[in-house]
Amino acid sequence: MFNFHNKIHFVVRVAKQDIKHGRVNNFMKILDKAEQQQGKLKNQVILEFQGYDHDPREVYEIPEIRKWVQKVYRQKPHIFYYLCDFSETMLIAYLCLVEVKVVAASGGRTKCEVELNTDLITEIILYATNYAIQSGDSYTKVITLANRIKNALLGHLPQII
């Protein structure tokens, strides 16, 4: 855990071997514990993919990371309830779920074409907000969650396209 933007965040370090072999069970155990704590980790989970520091590609361009995130989303489609929006974890997870095409790379900067999948964004928001309602979050918190996800995803997309 660490302090980021005056909030405590929970960093989940995902081992490269877990990613390469598509193993999500360690992460699922963390989410299962989070679910038992009734929202204490809401907007606090930051994913850190270990072993890719020297890979010049963006995280969302690495096929095995994309597959790992897609598998997590299939098993826990309300994952965005927990993901932190300040660290771009939420945006990176979304980019792993959609088609991303690199169109240019120079000077350490990558320019991508990203599929703006409004159906998927709606689905992500619905799963997260339904989970929030089931968890007992207030109407105000549910609306705040929906706006936080929308802003995290749509607010950053023009910067990477």
Results as ranks from 00 to 15, higher is better:
Asp137Cys: 02
Val98Asp: 10
Glu123Asp: 14
Lys101Val: 15
Asp53Pro: 00
Gln159Tyr: 13
Ser87Leu: 02
Val14Ser: 12
Phe86Asp: 14
Phe4Arg: 10
Glu35Gln: 08
Phe10Gly: 04
His78Gln: 09
Pro63Thr: 11
Met28Leu: 15
Arg109Glu: 05
Lys76Ala: 09
Thr89Met: 00
Phe49Met: 11
Val114Glu: 05
Thr89Glu: 01
Leu95Gly: 05
Thr129Asn: 03
His21Leu: 14
Ser138Val: 01
Ile149Met: 05
His5Trp: 08
Val59Trp: 00
Leu126Asn: 11
Gln70His: 09
Asp55Pro: 01
Glu58Arg: 10
Cys84Val: 03
Tyr139Glu: 11
Asn147Arg: 12
Ala146Tyr: 02
Leu153Ser: 03
Glu48His: 12
Leu145Thr: 05
Gly108Asn: 08
Asn25Phe: 08
Lys42Glu: 06
Val11Trp: 05
Tyr139Ile: 03
His9Asn: 13
Gly107Arg: 03
Val45Pro: 07
Lys76Ile: 02
Cys84Leu: 00
Arg23Lys: 13
Leu83Asn: 03
Ile62Val: 14
Asp119Ser: 13
Ile30Tyr: 07
Glu123Ser: 15
Tyr82Pro: 03
Lys33Val: 02
Gln38Asp: 05
Lys76Met: 02
Tyr139Phe: 04
Glu99Tyr: 04
Glu61Tyr: 03
Val98Phe: 06
Leu116Ser: 05
Asn147Pro: 03
Phe80Lys: 01
Met1Trp: 04
Ala34Gly: 00
Tyr131Asn: 07
His5Leu: 07
Lys7Ser: 11
Ser87Phe: 04
Val102Met: 15
Gln36Ile: 00
Asn6Met: 02
Thr140Phe: 06
Thr110Phe: 06
Tyr81Lys: 01
Gly107Leu: 05
Phe86Met: 09
Thr89Lys: 01
Tyr81Glu: 01
Ala105Asn: 08
Leu95Ser: 01
Ile133Asp: 09
Pro56Thr: 06
Cys112Asp: 09
Leu97Phe: 10
Leu154His: 01
Lys20Ile: 14
Gly39Tyr: 06
Val72Arg: 08
Gln134Ala: 15
Pro56Met: 02
Lys40Pro: 00
Gln17Pro: 04
Met28Val: 11
Lys40Ala: 06
Gln159Leu: 13
Ala15Val: 08
Val24Glu: 09
Ala132Phe: 00
Ser135Lys: 06
Lys76Glu: 06
Ala105Gln: 10
His21Ser: 15
Ile143Tyr: 07
Lys20Ala: 15
Ala152Asn: 07
Glu88Thr: 13
Asn3Phe: 07
Gln159Val: 08
Ile30Leu: 10
Gln75Pro: 02
Lys71Glu: 15
Glu115Gly: 00
Ile62Leu: 13
Leu153Met: 04
Gln50Met: 14
Asn147Met: 13
Ile65Arg: 11
Ile62Pro: 08
Leu116Val: 11
Asn25Glu: 15
Trp68Cys: 14
His78Phe: 00
Ile30Ala: 08
Asp85Val: 09
Ser106Lys: 12
Phe86Trp: 06
Tyr81Ile: 04
Gln37Val: 00
Gln36Gly: 12
Glu88Asn: 14
Ile121Gln: 04
Thr129Tyr: 03
Ile8Thr: 10
Tyr82Gly: 02
Ile149Arg: 02
Ala152Tyr: 02
Tyr73Glu: 09
Val102Ala: 15
Leu47Asn: 08
Arg13His: 12
Asp53Ile: 03
Leu126Ala: 10
